[in-house]
């Protein structure tokens, strides 16, 4: 029964680095723009600065994002943008989630 196994296969195939909710929100926001400031990512995710910093470091280690540090006046203005690999990863991830949703709907309909 390949159809009943498919959603589970798809679920296990999800990239855990991308799928974590905070990182998914960060990557989703970054996929909609060229670059965003650290402060904007704080606002859009609602994370604490330390937490966001930790998630960004993880994403940077996986080469999904690039962090450019600078200053706006006397305040630090860190800009973050997706790398090509990051853009591919988030696009693929959303595609996988859509397929998963479709497969789950199919399963539900076939059971009913």
């Amino acid at each position: 029964m390949p159809r009943t196994r498919r959603p589970f296969d798809q679920l296990t195939a999800l990239d855990k680095t991308v799928h974590e909710p905070a990182r998914l929100a960060i990557l989703t926001a970054l996929s909609a723009c060229r670059s965003a400031q650290f402060r904007y990512l704080l606002a859009v995710t609602g994370l604490t600065p330390g937490n966001l910093s930790m998630h960004l470091t993880k994403l940077e280690q996986k080469s999904l994002i690039k962090i450019e540090k600078g200053f706006a006046g006397k305040y630090p203005a860190t800009a973050v943008h997706l790398t090509d690999a990051g853009r591919d990863a988030i696009t693929r991830h959303w595609q996988q989630l859509r397929e998963l949703e479709a497969a789950a709907k199919y399963l539900k309909a076939s059971k009913a």
Binding site: V44, G46, K69, G70, Y75, P76, T78
Partner: peptide, 14 residues
């Protein structure tokens, strides 16, 4: 949609 982050002075140093 956006939360108000701490003031810029409280943001971590790069």
């Amino acid at each position: 949609t956006l939360a108000t982050p701490p003031s810029p002075g409280d943001a971590p140093h790069p």
